Amino acid sequence: MSIHLIRHGQSAFNAVFTGAGDPMIFDAGLTPLGHEQATAARIHVAELGIREVICSPLTRALQTARLIFPTDHIHVVAETREHLGHSCDVGRAPAALQAVFPDISFSHLPDIWWHQGELNAVGVPVEPADVFEARMVLLASALRARDARPLAVVCHGHVIDALTGTHPDNCGIVELRN
């Protein structure tokens, strides 16, 4: 059975990022368009018969998951986070996330669950490509080992691209092949 990778809806960072410079929007949430995209995706996802939902701990993914799966239990898995290269990919401590998403458990996450390392020119830690790629190999293996299928993973464009070779639009759904 299937593993469906779902990219988050449009974030505040996505809406303004031009590639010319980091707009310094940390852990960006969804825009109104992102909310619309996630709500529209709910109709399609309902047809997939999802039995388990895994989600990145970044706010835009959590908001997307909550809009698509409003009553389902969401399992937060830090390894599904985005490749850290911009401010929007820096997360928040579990206590801060718990205050915003009280029905989702973050107790298993360390205080800093995102990549820590060398800072770029604007002070954002950058995850080296080889570190990200190794994380994606482990993530793919862990996802394939899960019993509950069909499985939904609400995550990020670079994660989906690394796992499938496809970079979907916001709220795009790509199947992870075995």
Rank of each mutant, 00 (worst) to 15 (best):
P23H: 14
G157K: 06
G172K: 01
A15N: 09
V131H: 07
P168E: 05
A61R: 01
G172Q: 09
L33G: 00
V137F: 06
T164K: 13
I54F: 07
C171T: 11
A134G: 01
R135T: 03
C171P: 02
D27G: 08
H75V: 07
A15L: 12
D22C: 11
D89K: 04
L84E: 01
L151R: 02
S107M: 00
A20H: 12
W113A: 04
L62H: 10
G34L: 05
T39Y: 10
V100N: 00
R149K: 13
A99D: 08
E79T: 11
D27A: 03
R51H: 10
P150I: 04
G157M: 14
D27M: 03
L33N: 07
T31M: 08
G123C: 02
V90N: 04
H158R: 14
I3A: 02
T39M: 14
W114A: 01
R92K: 12
I173Y: 06
R66S: 13
Q63H: 12
L84K: 05
H35F: 13
E52V: 00
A12T: 13
V122K: 11
H8F: 10
V126L: 13
S107T: 10
A96E: 09
E36D: 15
A20I: 04
N178I: 03
N120M: 11
L58G: 07
A148N: 03
I104L: 07
S105P: 01
M1C: 00
I173K: 06
A134Q: 14
I112Y: 00
I25L: 14
A12P: 05
L33Q: 13
F69I: 06
A145V: 00
L119K: 12
R66N: 07
T166D: 05
D22I: 13
L58C: 10
Q37Y: 11
C155Q: 04
A96Y: 02
V77W: 15
A148K: 10
P23Y: 11
P102L: 09
S141L: 04
D111S: 14
E52Y: 00
L138D: 15
V154W: 08
R92E: 03
E52H: 12
T164I: 09
E79F: 00
N178V: 07
R66Q: 15
